[in-house]
């Protein structure tokens, strides 16, 4: 199968660490991206989104003064189609509390440091092939979190288990990437036949 034409897509990389930006830029280049825009702070990222809307945003959690969660919330409140942009959060902290906070801020995918080309590609394929509907509710704006393939997937109701803590053990235990993917609402393995995109 041929490779994705990543060179046609633009990506915005937001991280206040110059060396993390080096790592992620090299990773994106090795995947074929050539239109890589970078920002070291949330305000600069929002300005870039305004001037040249990216096709995907990679954002670090731990930034100051605006962290990745707040940046994601602001992106989700933008007017127009910019608010739908897929957001991949990158963090070294993969505890249940952090993953749920990212999910509730409107993040699409959660990537645990140290990032590898394999995990980055997995998350990219997920947002490309399995886009989620976008929910706009009084307390939440972001990707629909209902589990893919669940029997109630065609209804707007939440799963009854959404208000319960997943049986994952201590809240400060680092989660595995597959546990995180399940919490974010996705399948832990990619489908053999990728689904058609929404449009």
């Amino acid at each position: 199968m041929k490779a994705y034409a990543f060179e046609r897509a633009s990506v915005l990389l937001v991280d206040d660490s110059v060396w993390m930006r080096v790592i992620l830029r090299q990773m994106l280049k090795s995947l074929g991206f050539s239109r890589i825009h970078e920002a070291e702070a949330g305000d600069a990222a929002l300005a870039l989104v305004d001037s040249a809307p990216p096709d995907i945003v990679l954002v670090d959690w731990d930034m100051k003064p605006m962290d990745g969660l707040e940046l994601t919330r602001r992106l989700r409140r933008l007017p127009g189609e910019a608010r739908y942009v897929p957001v991949i959060m990158i963090s070294a902290y993969s505890t249940l509390g952090n993953v749920l906070a990212a999910r509730n801020a409107g993040v699409n995918e959660f990537l645990v440091k140290p990032a590898s080309p394999q995990t980055m590609y997995h998350h990219l394929v997920s947002v490309i092939e399995r886009p989620r509907p976008f929910v706009e509710a009084p307390g939440y704006r972001g990707p629909d979190r209902r589990r893919r393939g669940a029997s109630d997937d065609d209804t707007p109701r939440r799963r009854s288990t959404d208000h319960q803590s997943p049986p994952l053990g201590p809240a400060d235990r680092p989660l595995s990437q597959s546990e995180i993917t399940a919490i974010m609402g996705g399948a832990t393995t990619l489908p053999a036949q990728p689904m058609e995109a929404g449009e």
């Binding site: 994705y4 034409a5 092939e129 706009e136 509710a137 489908p191 990728p194 929404g198």
Partner: peptide, 19 residues
């Protein structure tokens, strides 16, 4: 609660690829 299926801009640009 409003549910939107936005256009998949990323997919339309990068096309098909290996999983």
């Amino acid at each position: 609660v409003r549910i939107v299926q936005p256009p998949n801009r990323l997919k339309s640009k990068v096309g098909r690829g290996s999983p």
